[in-house]
């Protein structure tokens, strides 16, 4: 086995573990931020300022009884949370965390894989992620779960299209599906008269960015698009019947996919590791944090959509907008580049 492949494997393990740790503290961050926005304190009993709370929660969930409903489709019921949990971090494999660094004389690339179809790979993994939800909803033998699964299937298919199409403008401009290539292009400087701007795609594709943001929230089933769970309507939707660590798998998968899609958005639209001074992974982390903050902010602020409104938004508002964006980008790419 050659050293390159080995370093890739090691880096994959590192990314996976960092993601899992981040995810645990993502729950802490969400609770603390929400508490601050809602005029309360948040977790503060376990450890200093509640810092051990995620660990306590983890232990609690792990030792809880694992209840399987009597009429559940047992095999699928057991499979579904695993599917969700395994697929969520896999998408992070294509995200570049920086240029290569040298460790013990070996050059190590700060990405797990630079594949030619990285962006599409990301979408493909995202589209697989829905299986956990839809199968969990089906297998629970509960009508609320079934409704959650059905809603989720419709929602994820719709917003998957929007998410994919919102990226097409970026692909047209960059001419590549590889995230490494896209980040490299964004690190160039854009000269607009006297202004020197970073060539981030948020500047050339603002509409696509907004649509991506909306679709990303819907894709991860977060408020105000959390209809598959909707605790006040469907009592948790697809995970109504799950308990213990199987529930925690669903829960963690949601947070991991939030982090991963934030990293992805930061990479595609906000220049990834590119920053004003000293490029590096910290810039990526900062940008992803902005995304995550937006997620939490949204959750505390807005009410939930109704099912028909959600689908109407996707098909009647976002889809035409994103198609117009592709059309305009195509025109500019064909004839407009000389003018810039």
């Amino acid at each position: 086995m050659d050293a390159n492949l080995l370093s890739s494997y090691i880096f994959a393990v590192v990314v996976l573990n960092v993601l899992l740790g981040l995810m645990a503290y993502m729950t802490y961050l969400e609770r603390k931020l929400m508490a601050a926005m809602q005029d309360r304190v948040g977790p503060n009993r376990t450890g200093p300022v509640g810092l051990l709370q995620p660990i306590a929660d983890g232990i609690k969930l792990l030792v809880k009884e694992d209840i399987i409903p009597k009429h559940a489709d047992r095999r699928i019921f057991l499979l579904a949370p695993l599917l969700s949990f395994v697929l969520a971090p896999v998408a992070a494999a294509v995200i570049p965390f920086g240029d290569s660094i040298t460790v013990f004389g070996h050059e190590v690339n700060l990405y797990v894989a630079d594949i030619n179809v990285a962006a599409l790979y990301f979408l493909a993994i995202g589209s697989m992620g829905v299986y956990g939800i839809i199968l969990g909803g089906y297998a629970s033998a509960n009508r609320y779960s079934l409704l959650g699964g059905l809603r989720s299937a419709a929602q994820v298919i719709s917003y998957e299209i929007i998410l994919g199409l919102s990226l097409v403008g970026v692909f047209i401009l960059s001419g590549s599906l590889s995230l490494v290539e896209i980040v490299n292009q964004q690190s160039e400087t854009l000269h607009l008269g006297p202004l020197q701007l970073p060539n981030w795609f948020i500047l050339s594709q603002p509409l696509a960015f907004v649509i991506f943001l909306i679709a990303a929230v819907a894709e991860t089933n977060r408020a105000p698009f959390d209809l598959p769970e909707a605790e006040t309507e469907l009592i948790g939707g697809f995970h109504t019947e799950y308990s213990g660590f199987r529930f925690s798998f669903f829960f963690l998968a949601e947070y991991i996919s939030m982090i991963v899609i934030s990293l992805f958005g930061a990479t595609i639209f906000l220049g990834g590791t590119d920053g004003p001074i000293r490029d590096g992974v910290w810039w990526l982390a900062l940008k992803a944090f902005i995304f995550l903050f937006f997620y939490i902010w949204l959750r505390t602020t807005v009410p939930r959509f109704r099912y028909d409104q959600l689908m109407g938004l996707a098909w009647k508002v976002l889809l035409p907008l994103v198609l117009i964006n592709i059309l305009l980008t195509g025109f500019i790419r064909l004839w407009g580049l000389g003018m810039l």
């Binding site: 929400m34 809602q38 309360r40 006040t232 505390t300 959509f305």
Partner: peptide, 11 residues
């Protein structure tokens, strides 16, 4: 809260 505006109940 039923409609999904989480913070209102706390306010």
């Amino acid at each position: 809260l039923d409609i999904g505006a989480l913070s209102m109940s706390l306010y």
